[in-house]
Design a protein around this nucleic acid. Structure first.
Length: 573
DNA sequence: GCCGTTTTCGGCCCGACTGTTTTCAGTCG
């Protein structure tokens, strides 16, 4: 994300928090938070938009916020920020993330008891003074204390790749119950968001009690938080919360729509409904007292004259406007994928042999798989010497003759060195079917220029994990992603959607920007063993969140067309 | 603070749950 987009988003987020804490007009708070979200989601650099004088053309950015953006970009400061956030102690606003403790209570504790930090808060709980404030009591304070415990141990959101297998186990189990009609994950997991908060699962059934009981008594359940007739909530082994809700068949669609979110998408949908004299809730769409839709999601969208919107698009990033105009993209699907374009074998640091990988890829229904082991400088990952990769090349050729109806593509994940040259010479690269290039060392050293230089090489077909981020632990290279995308467009180089669960790099928003620049994308799992090949599904999720249609992806090409793509760039020079 | 084929002012999504209340405020999703 462009650096100013991020800084402005953070500033508006903080202003929103501060205003909430100060008990300001809630709609003003929403406006700031909306602006923060818009800046996070923006595919363009806000400085570019500012230079064009087009700030006000962004929906959700009005006169006030446009002025503040302008002030910040010109002077590096924002008066409003200093005013409302300036004198609040560091870390105080974060206390609003404590479950069961909201701005009102925090504000009260601050005003009446001088609470300014987490340790202050604990003190006024323990000495009983918080419980004596108006509308407070023993139980409320006990809940806040529980919230603090969760806050302190809170593993933040878990990654999609960890949540996915967990939710599949639960939904498979629920489907076996005779009371159950339909089962679906909901929430951010259904939207394929890269991280997931609590895991929500929706069930339609005639009676809820037995379903909930079966769920809360699954062997993996560590703690039961709630166990009613329509809702069950547990902590699973590993500390992740999972909620199951049971609804009757005739409101399943409305409930699924509701619990899938995102919040911003739903808010917009509801406000559209209101303009038409309709009311949407998780029970259905109502005209006065009369229920007019709710059995399926298609019905809910249909009553607003909209086509069904794929869950991955439901982020209020223009999908509702596109749906109104009949311009929703027809998104790529997992069944379109003909091969995995980034897999490691036991030649470098992977666990599986070429034979095993080919067999498994074939079983998954692919037509090809690209073996992209590390190059010689990446010692810690068993990078291949030039002799060794030539051996591998011959090995692949022999296997391809043996296997019918399937192609192993000889590739490499060649390192982009500190000076921007590649770790193998061109005379070697030209022997390979596909060349994926990546940075693994010197994350802070002019990465933008190095990648640009690499893309100028006619043999480089794909840039792997272009930002280098690790979701759980690392920010990524210091790069200007827009320059990378522009260069990819100019040189006919594809950018990777690395589907490894902790990477998902490029991210959804960057994928969408790349598409807008006409860049092709390539999904690779970066799998280091057979089991990890399933993560292609995560990559497809990111592609769909980036609005990709089949033709935007290399992976949907038959093998000959894929070779054509490679040759076009090689012949250019 | 944003926004407008009913509005440039007066709205802004909706409901459940909980705990504190004697009619409702706060928090959550």
């Amino acid at each position: 994300m462009p650096v100013k987009n991020r800084e402005l988003a953070l500033a508006f987020e903080r202003i929103g928090d501060a205003l909430e804490f100060r008990g300001e007009n809630p709609f003003k708070i929403i406006a700031y938070r909306r602006a923060a979200r818009i800046l996070n989601d923006l595919t363009e650099d806000i400085e570019v938009i500012h230079a064009k004088g087009a700030l006000r053309s962004i929906p959700g950015i009005g006169e006030g916020i446009a002025k503040k953006i302008d002030e910040f970009l010109r002077t590096g400061k924002m008066k409003k920020y200093e005013e409302v956030v300036g004198d609040i102690p560091d870390g105080f606003l974060e206390l609003m993330a404590i479950p069961n403790l909201g701005p009102k209570t925090l504000g009260l504790a601050n005003k009446e008891l001088g609470v300014r930090s987490l340790s202050d808060l604990k003190r006024v709980i323990l000495d009983g003074s918080l419980a004596r404030l108006p509308r407070m009591g023993e139980k409320k304070v006990a809940n806040i204390l529980k919230g603090i415990e969760r806050f302190e141990v809170s593993k933040e959101r878990i990654s999609l790749g960890e949540a996915f297998p967990l939710v599949t186990r639960v939904t498979d189990r629920l489907r076996q119950l005779k009371e159950v009609h339909q089962v679906s994950p909901a929430g951010s997991l259904r939207r394929s968001k890269e991280t997931v908060g609590d895991i929500d699962i929706l069930v339609s059934a005639e009676t809820g009690r037995e379903v909930i009981r079966a769920f809360t008594h699954m062997p993996e359940v560590e703690e039961r938080l709630a166990e009613g007739d329509t809702k069950g909530s547990v902590v699973m082994a590993g500390g992740h919360q999972v909620d199951v809700r049971v609804v009757p068949e005739n409101s399943y669609g409305a409930a699924l729509q509701y619990f899938t979110g995102s919040k911003a998408h739903n808010v917009k949908l509801r406000s559209m409904a209101r303009e038409r004299g309709l009311k949407i809730s998780e029970y259905g769409v109502f005209k006065g007292e009369r229920k007019v839709a709710g059995k399926t999601e298609e019905e809910v969208y249909g009553i607003l004259n909209l086509p069904w919107v794929p869950p991955e698009l439901r982020e209020d990033r223009g999908e509702i406007e596109a749906a109104m105009k009949g311009k929703l993209p027809s998104l790529v699907e997992y069944v379109h994928i003909k091969g995995d374009l980034h897999v490691h074998s036991d030649y470098s640091d992977g666990a599986a042999s070429l034979e095993e990988i080919a067999e498994e890829a074939k079983r998954l229904g692919y037509e090809y798989v690209a073996i992209c082991d590390h190059s010689k400088s990446v010692r810690y990952a068993g990078g291949l010497s030039e002799e060794r990769i030539l051996e591998q090349l011959e090995h692949i050729a022999r296997l391809n003759e043996k296997i019918g109806n399937f192609t192993i593509l000889a590739g490499t994940e060649v390192d982009i060195l500190q000076n921007g040259t590649l770790d193998y010479p061109d005379r070697l690269l030209e022997k390979l079917d596909i060349v994926v290039a990546a940075i693994h060392m010197g994350f802070k050293q002019n990465c933008t220029e190095r990648m640009q230089k690499a893309m100028d090489n006619p043999h480089v077909d794909v840039i792997a994990h272009p930002t280098g981020r690790l979701i759980s632990s690392r920010e990524g290279y210091q790069i200007e992603i827009h320059k990378i995308i522009e260069k990819a467009a100019a040189t006919g180089t594809a950018l990777e959607i690395n589907a490894y669960y902790d990477r998902l790099d490029l991210s959804d928003v960057n994928v969408r920007t790349a598409k807008e620049y006409g860049v092709h994308l390539s999904i690779g799992t970066d799998a280091h063993n057979l089991h990890q090949l399933w993560m292609m599904k995560l990559g497809v999720g990111v592609a769909r969140r980036g609005w990709l249609e089949p033709e935007d992806l290399l992976n949907i090409l038959p093998v000959d067309a894929l070779r054509d793509f490679v040759n076009v760039k090689r012949k250019r020079s």
